[in-house]
Amino acid sequence: MPLIHISLRAGKPAVYRQAIFDSLYRAMRETLDVPEGDQFMTISEHDAANFRYGAAFGVARSDDLVYIQITVFDTRTPEQKKALFRRTAQLLGKSPGIRPEDVFVNVLEAAKENWSVGHGLAQFA
């Protein structure tokens, strides 16, 4: 039940943004065993004045940087998360062509009882 928020600089075409969705969904299916159809993702675009980054941690980023924040159940192993990071960078490199240096991923974990996916119910508690 991942919930994904993606942030990038404004100006990319719809096909580029859709490729990000598709690549992330594939990476999650392959590494986190996300069920088919489990696609809860948003993209926020920011003008240059509202999008900042730096070269911290020895990474030479560009204006094509994409911030990806994934909230998941707190049941994923460190190995699964590492596989997710690798596969995400690989797939985004293929489509839409984002350099690995420009793929910034953050995974947030939440207990199952903290989720309601509709009808005001705690489906996983």
Rank of each mutant, 00 (worst) to 15 (best):
G37L: 09
V105D: 05
F57S: 12
V34E: 02
P35E: 10
A48D: 14
W115C: 06
A89N: 09
D22Q: 15
R29Y: 07
T77M: 03
P100L: 08
H5F: 09
A55V: 03
M28Q: 05
A48G: 06
R61S: 00
V105R: 03
G93K: 09
Y25D: 10
Y16Q: 04
A83W: 13
K81M: 02
L32Q: 02
F51T: 05
A122S: 09
Q80H: 10
F124V: 00
R99W: 01
S44Q: 09
A55L: 06
T71S: 01
L8P: 02
Y16V: 02
P35L: 05
Y53Q: 02
A19D: 15
S44D: 11
K82R: 14
H119N: 14
G11R: 05
R26I: 04
I70H: 00
K94L: 14
G58P: 05
F40L: 10
Y53I: 01
N106V: 15
Y53C: 02
H46Y: 15
V66F: 12
P2L: 02
R17D: 04
L108V: 14
M28E: 01
K94T: 12
W115P: 06
Y67H: 10
R26F: 04
A125M: 08
V72P: 00
F104N: 12
L8G: 03
D64G: 08
D102W: 04
F73A: 04
M41G: 05
G97D: 13
F73T: 01
Q123V: 06
P13E: 11
A14S: 10
Q18L: 12
I20H: 07
R76L: 01
L121T: 13
Y67I: 03
A89L: 07
R87V: 07
H46N: 15
G54C: 09
A19P: 11
A48P: 03
A48S: 15
E30D: 13
G118R: 11
T88W: 11
G58Y: 07
L92D: 13
K94S: 11
E30Q: 13
D38F: 02
A14K: 08
L91Q: 12
Q123K: 12
G11C: 05
R29N: 03
L84W: 09
Y16N: 05
F51D: 03
R29C: 04
K81V: 06
S44E: 13
G120W: 10
L121R: 15
L84K: 06
G37M: 11
G37W: 11
E30N: 06
R52P: 00
M41A: 04
A122V: 01
I68G: 00
A122I: 01
R86G: 08
V117I: 10
I68R: 00
A27T: 09
P96G: 07
A125Q: 12
Q90D: 15
P78R: 07
E45D: 14
I70S: 00
M41I: 07
P100Q: 10
G93F: 08
V34K: 07
Q69W: 08
D33C: 01
L8M: 15
V66Y: 12
F73D: 02
A125C: 06
I6N: 11
D102N: 09
G118Q: 07
A10T: 14
V34L: 11
G58Q: 06
G58D: 06
R52H: 15
V103Y: 09
I20T: 05
E45I: 07
